[in-house]
């Protein structure tokens, strides 16, 4: 008998083991919900699967009586728009400033202490400032995502640039490269896969800030809807919304990973070889 730490499950067993917790949770929920509803058919805390699917049908596939829109898709569109703009700007800012401060000691000396301090400011604490300065429109919500994620990406990129072996940078100079050419042909392509993984890591934070901002001031959006229907204890709407947000987050993470593998095969093969 092998030691426990050396036992590798087979492919099919792995798949089965991965499914087990999900099935267990669903069954647990189903029993609990049935019991509560048997006692009180108007219970709102643990709605049955039928109630949930009714709610999804109402939100996603029926026009809203008041506005004539499909609320679920309207919310999804609004939230995705905000998070994509926010994360996109964060990545661009992170790449630019991270590379500048990683590559240029003069820039780093002036910039690095500032960004270290700024990244310690809790973004939620300055949310009121954002609402005061940028109003209650889209800009404030996008700004919150940027302020929450950009400093982390900047610091991550900066440290990755500094971790590039100095041999590589010296070699490029002996081949006649200027600072600019080292930046765009040697550092940038090597840092791009790390930027993608920094984006993947900050997606969770970005969703957090997005939902927080929507909860406080918005007219549409997934976070807004959840906090709106909370007033009526509409668990039948909240639960599918949460699952949908999870699915969206997973899809974004998955597509970023696939994008990186497609565009930077050398990086992933190298990492796998380590």
């Amino acid at each position: 008998m092998k030691k426990l730490m050396n036992i590798e499950p087979s492919r099919s067993l792995k798949g089965f083991l991965a499914l087990v917790p999900f099935v267990l949770i669903l069954m647990l929920y189903w029993t609990a919900s049935n019991e509560r509803l048997a006692e009180n058919p108007y219970d709102k805390l643990l709605p049955s699967f039928t109630q949930i699917s009714d709610a999804v049908d109402r939100m996603a596939f029926t026009e809203d009586k008041r506005s004539g829109e499909y609320l679920f898709w309207q919310d999804t569109g609004a939230s995705l728009y905000r998070i994509c703009i926010g994360i996109g700007i964060s990545a661009a800012v992170g790449l630019l400033f991270g590379m500048l401060s990683g590559l240029l000691p003069v820039f780093r000396s002036g910039f690095s202490p500032l960004i270290t301090i700024v990244s310690l400011i809790p973004p939620m604490a300055i949310l009121p400032i954002l609402f005061i300065t940028f109003g209650l429109g889209e800009l404030a919500k996008v700004m919150l995502i940027i302020i929450g994620t950009a400093p982390v990406i900047i610091r991550d990129i900066q440290s990755h640039v500094r971790q590039l072996p100095s041999e590589i940078l010296i070699k490029a100079q002996t081949l006649g490269a200027s600072t600019w050419l080292v930046a765009i042909r040697v550092v940038l392509p090597q840092i791009m896969p790390r930027l993608v993984s920094a984006m993947r890591l900050s997606l969770g934070t970005a969703w957090l800030f997005l939902i927080a901002a929507e909860a406080i001031a918005a007219q549409e959006g997934l976070g807004y809807r959840i906090f709106l229907v909370r007033r009526y204890m509409s668990m039948d709407v909240i639960l599918p919304y949460v699952m949908w947000i999870t699915a969206l987050a997973f899809a974004m993470d998955f597509s970023l990973r696939k994008f990186s593998e497609l565009c930077f095969p050398w990086y992933h093969q190298q990492e796998a070889g380590k």
Binding site: E167, I168, K171, A172, L175, S178, I184, R185
Partner: peptide
């Protein structure tokens, strides 16, 4: 070690030397 650029193929690794001097803006 670390003398060559990991993100370029063999040919690109050698070509980059002259591309640096031939194209100072794009490389």
């Amino acid at each position: 070690k670390y003398s060559v650029f990991p993100h370029l193929t063999v040919l690109q690794n050698v070509m980059i030397a002259d591309e640096f001097s031939a194209s100072p803006f794009l490389g």
